[in-house]
Nucleic acid binder design. Structure first.
Lengths: 144, 144
DNA sequence: TATTGTTATACTCTATAACTATA
DNA sequence: TATAGTTATAGAGTATAACAATA
């Protein structure tokens, strides 16, 4: 079957999704990287900055300003690890959890309106396939 | 059904696809924007620079250097429109077609290896859904 | 000597505005 | 006056390397 490149289709789709996220994030006073950090701490099991950076696909130097602002806003805590005083243990606060939940709900509402244009059977398959592909590339199980 | 944000899944997937494209493009001596231009002229019906920029989601100022290099490499032609001498008519050369075809074949081979990890039934549905979503956002038929 | 987090610097993109030549 | 293409400038985002503290 002849088709366009995947990247050629994914790029504008991602751009549209990001454009839709922007006003929601601004309304809640966080940046995209800030939301990525909150999301990783909300769901995940990362504890150090290095692990966090790896989890969200960012450079360790790139998240520092973001962490500073999230901490100042009381959305995360950052304390030295007593067992390795080089490292900082990150944790999301209750307010951080609530904010992340609010943002995610708003974002997924918009996404659901987009996905509503797909036939219901296709929608589930699309999401399942996307989950699979995401996992494959994140866990480096596939060398493209 | 609880799920991650679409953008959160799409972003690393797109990054992986782009990373896989990079060496192929370098091998053929074109940049990502160069390949985007060739692809639009290869498939499409755009004739002016403004239309091309819009088609590939770029600013008109951003593609000029790219067009210069593609023209110098004999991959495209760029001639003043006799009916409106402000505009330039773009066209892809035979060599441009061949190069674009070679690159696309290589890229889609890599993509197919990734997609091969999906069940065959899911693969078709995924591509169909992606086509649909791509069309929706590109034609601005959906306001997220 | 290696690693965690941090800072500083340089570089690449990108967006914006100003310019020309045509209309 | 408006538009197609071009150029120049400034800003944002990013990568790289160097640093301090700890292991």
């Amino acid at each position: 079957m002849s088709r366009r490149d995947l990247a050629e289709m994914l790029h504008p789709l991602l751009q549209a999704l990001i454009a839709a996220e922007r006003p929601v994030l601004a309304e809640h006073g966080v940046t995209m990287w800030g939301y990525a950090v909150l999301g990783a701490l909300h769901d995940g099991s990362v504890r150090t900055q290095a692990a966090l950076a790896e989890a969200i696909g960012a450079d360790k130097t790139r998240i520092i300003g973001t962490l500073d602002r999230l901490q100042a806003a009381g959305l995360i805590t950052r304390e030295p690890d007593p067992r390795d005083r080089r490292a900082r243990i990150l944790a999301i606060t209750g307010e951080g959890h609530r904010l992340c939940g609010s943002i995610r709900a708003r974002i997924q509402e918009a996404e659901d309106r987009l996905l509503a244009h797909l036939p219901e059977a296709d929608r589930e398959t699309f999401l399942r396939a996307l989950h699979t592909l995401h996992r494959l590339v994140r866990e480096a199980e596939v060398t493209l």
